[in-house]
Every structure is written in structure tokens, then in C-alpha cells.
Design a protein around this nucleic acid. Sequence first.
RNA 1: CGGGGAGUAGCGCAGCCUGGCAGCGCACCUGCCUUGGGAGCAGGGGGUCGGCGGUUCAAAUCCGCCCUCCCCGACCA
Length: 569
Amino acid sequence: MRLSRYFLPTLREDPAEAEVISHKLMLRAGMIRRLASGIYSFLPLGLRVLRKVERIVREEMDKAGALEVLLPLVQPAELWQETGRWDKFGKELLRFKDRKDHDFCLGPTHEEVITDLVRKEVRSYRDLPLILYQIATKFRDEIRPRFGLMRGREFIMKDAYSFDADEEGLNRSYELMYEAYEKIFNRCGLRFRAVLADTGAIGGDVSHEFMVLAETGEDVIASCPSCGYAANLEMAEATRRFSYPEEKEKPLQKVSTPGVKRAEEVAAFLGVPLAKLVKTLIYLVDGKPYAVLIRGDHELNEVKLRRALGAERVEMAGPEEVEKLTGAPVGFAGPIGLSRVTIIADRALEGLKNFVVGANEKDAHYVNANFSRDFKAEAFYDLRNVTEGDLCPRCGKPLTLTRGIEVGHIFKLGTKYSAAMGATFLDREGKERPLVMGCYGIGVSRTVAAAIEQNHDAQGIIWPLSLAPFHVALLTLGPQDDELMRASEALYQGLTQAGVEVLWDERDERPGVKFKDADLIGLPYKVVVGKKFKETGKVEVKPRAGEGLQLLSPEEAVNFLKEKVASQT
RNA sequence: CGGGGAGUAGCGCAGCCUGGCAGCGCACCUGCCUUGGGAGCAGGGGGUCGGCGGUUCAAAUCCGCCCUCCCCGACCA
């Protein structure tokens, strides 16, 4: 592609709308433009990267025996009512009516549609297993879209659904997809981890997330360097037992703490360590009030709370509710004397003595509070986030915390949707049974952003060869020079014929501009035809990442790059 | 939804407090010049100052309402 004929509006400065690096670089590199909050257009360069990811996904899905379909973006309410998700899904589901006043939504995911399709067409165990997938636009009306393509409202996703006769079949399909995902992200040239995950709104029991490792990731992963255990924060079990020093229970005492609310402030004010403080968080769990106790230096994980109580929804109580339930403003809640509220506690509190809690009274706390003597906790659960220093639940060695970007998520759904929607088949004995399902997503557009978060420097993007929009930037320094142009043209033809994708910068621009643009858009190799070529007949071949400048004859350059591209894509 | 910030040329911003010709840098067009890391000179085009209403002789500037975008939080594959 000749750059003078291409549509590549690069920006010299960071756009004001972008905060994270992938978003800034995609705007600057002329890959995307924003149309509305969380909604982006892909420009030619951005689309080429998207297509690279799609191609890899498609090839690996096909190899795994999955069959591609294309399902509608617009979906009728009736299907969602069948599974109950029309009411459950919340505002992320964008709903609207057609001219006949029928309810529709934009599909945020396609379990209902695919299950409907399959229940109508699949009758027999002989048709199983079946794995269908699509690569399509999804819409989720996120509360707060942000970070460009990382959390858009409209985005491109690959979603696959497996249908099996039994659990064993599901396990095989799940394993097949798991392996396909490893191949996909390896081929994308990304450093990633598969981690145990919670199943959230999709439902089901077993689930893994595929995380691209990046400092800027939104999610935290706990992993064990010795045994390979890896889980996201919601799943990483906090198993560490704290052995607290033997102390006699001291008398309970109310102290004045005027205006001191936050745990750190209370600890500092009273001169006790943060770990001697117990936070009391008031939650509404499926509408019922709970007081959740957690150590001052720990963080509550709401997903763990929801799972521990087997609840559908947990939400923190608002200021009015807190006041109504505890009799004190937010910041002074405590377990002592609470009625009408179920008290539960994090496991790390077992054995803790003489701690500080709120007094359910404005500007007052208790010191030397103790379990059973002063109040009773209904139960102890694992409710906190693991921290650096927690131990691996599998092998007991210390866990490491890293950040990641979720690019894939696979679930064993079981019969949740098939049972609700009557998607059944006849087994060998002629008995009717619900299909056993799995579902498997990859955020295709998010993967593009994640690749940039993981691969960039101060100059711009550094594409892995397999995702790069072009393999090579051919820079002609001095396009007025006939000799340079002839050599460049020949090189361009040679590379193209060798299967190397070339973006040829033959614009009438100064060298600096060409170098800056080439670095910004991050093509893996630069080939420079300029002064040195006039002197020596050789061109420069420079990788975008790291050192390794080579002076090669045009033929050598073609062979070198052909070799690189063939081996890495 | 709560808190904070912003909207002025394609992009980045100043001007607003204290009302009085709408500016700067980059980009764009023309010419000259230059050509190995975003050159230089000269000339030029481009604006409903987010929208609506109000105050005033006069509003980008003051007041009110609305819209949009960004950040933090809550929420979320």
C-alpha cells in the first residue's frame, strides 16, 4: 500500500479525550475515531488489526471443529423473558420498541438466540456434540464506558456455544475450547494467563478467564509461581490462618472519636494498628440487611460475599439505611447491640481479641471488643481479597499478584439455558434430556487494545508480527530521487510478491516525519531506502523493537523479511 | 446515580475573573527553500465561541436551563 494513497490521519499530540495508553495510541495512530461515548469507528489501519485477530480466532475455532454462524444483533424480548434475563439483566441491556410496539433489545450476548436456534433444529444425540460460534458486534449499555476500546459499549466479540449430551461431553468441549484459546493468544503474540473465575451474570459453575498481562490492567490476578495455580481476585481463596497472640479479654470500653470515620483515621486516632480494627460494612443481600465484619487492613470482595451467602444481589446500604439500621451515621457502625441485622465475619477475624469497632453512635467507638462476649457472628466466611503475602490454596507457597486485562472468558453453563428454554434432545434410550451447554467469549476489539497496552514504548505501538496491520514500513527518504524511487518500487514489488505486507511511505515528507509516523503506528520492521543506498546499494532493515539494524542488499532484505513473516504468522 | 473537570478553527490550548475587533501552536492551501528523527521564510483559507433563553448600548466573557464529553466512585463480560 502506498501511504500517499492511504487514509492514515495520525495525530502529533495526545487527544484530550484519552487517558489510557492504548486509547491514546489508537487515536494517534489513526486506527479509530470516537462517534459517541463508548462507540468507535475503525479506520483502515485499525480494521486491518481487527481482521488479523479475527483471522487467528476463526482459524483456531475452525480447527477445533466449531462452525461459524452469524446471529442477529437485534433480539426479541420474548426470548429474554423465557430465561428471566429480561428482568434480571439491568440497564446494560439496551431495550427499545419497534413500530408495532414490540419489545426488542440489542444483544449483549447470545445464549438465548443460539439456544432457540438449536432447540428448533437439534433432535438427537447423533447431532451432538455441536459447537457454533460467531464474530459479531455486541452492545452493552455500560454505566461508564471508558478507556476507548477496552470498555466500549459497542464492541466486537467472538462467542461460541457448545452443546453436548452430558457432563462428560461438556468437559471435552470445554477442554477443546480452553486449548484453542491458548493457541489463539499465543499466536497473537501476547503474554497471558488463564485464571479461575467467577461466573457472574452468565451463570454456570466452572469458568476461566484469559488475562493479558499488563501493568495497566483493570483486573488483579493471584498466581502461584511454584504450582501454577492462578485465579482472579474474586476466586482466589484466602486460606492464610492468622495466629493472634494469646491475650486476656479486656473490659469493653466506649471511647469518643469525634469526626473520625475512616479505618485508617480511627487507628491513628486511637494509636492502635490497623489490623486491630474491625470494619463493619452494612450490606443489603437480596434485600436483607447484613453487617459484614472485616479486618481494618483488609478489603471486602463483594463477589465472595455474594457467593458465600448464595445470593443473587449484594449492594452496600445507603447512608439513610445505615442510619436506620445502626442508629448512627456512616462511619460508626459496629456489631455490638445490632438487632434486625445478620452479622457475618471474614475468616481472618477468627481468634482476634480486644479489637476496635464502631459503637453505633455518632463520634464513638468501642475498644477491646471480643467475639461471643460482646456480640455473636452468625458465621465466618472467606470474604476478603487476598493480598501480597497470602498463601497458595493449592500448595501453600506465597502468591504473587499481577494485573491483567480480561480478553477471554469460558464457562461451563450446564443446563441453565437449555432447561429454561426447553432445548432438549433424545438420547440413545429415546429419553428426552436437556442439552448440556458451554459458552466461550473472546473480546476481539478488546484484544487489540490489550495488545497495545502490553506492547508499546514512548514512540508508539510495537505490534507483534501476527497482529501488525502491515509487516513492514518501507521508507523512501527522498522521493524526488528517481534512483531511490526505482529501487523502492522494486523492493515494494519484491516484498509484496513474497507475501510481506508493506506500507510504502513515498510521501513528499521529510525523513523525521516518516520515522515518527512509522514508530507511532508500530510496524514490526522498517526498511529505509535513502542516503546509504546511494552510497552502498544497500537498504537498512530495522526491527521496531530493540536493536538489530542490518544493512542488506534489496534481495537479502526480501529474503530476510519473507523468512520472518513466514515463521511468525 | 454521586463527586470533580471540560466544551473557543481538523488537533492541542489561551482569552472568561474585571463585558468592548476571536487569538496562539500544530495541521491544511500557495510560493521559495530544505531533505537521515515531527525544518525555515513569506503569503493564505478556515469559527452558529456546545445549544436555548435572559441581563446589557454591547456577551466567548455575567445569570438560568439544557446537551455532550472526560476523570474518580458505585456497577460490570
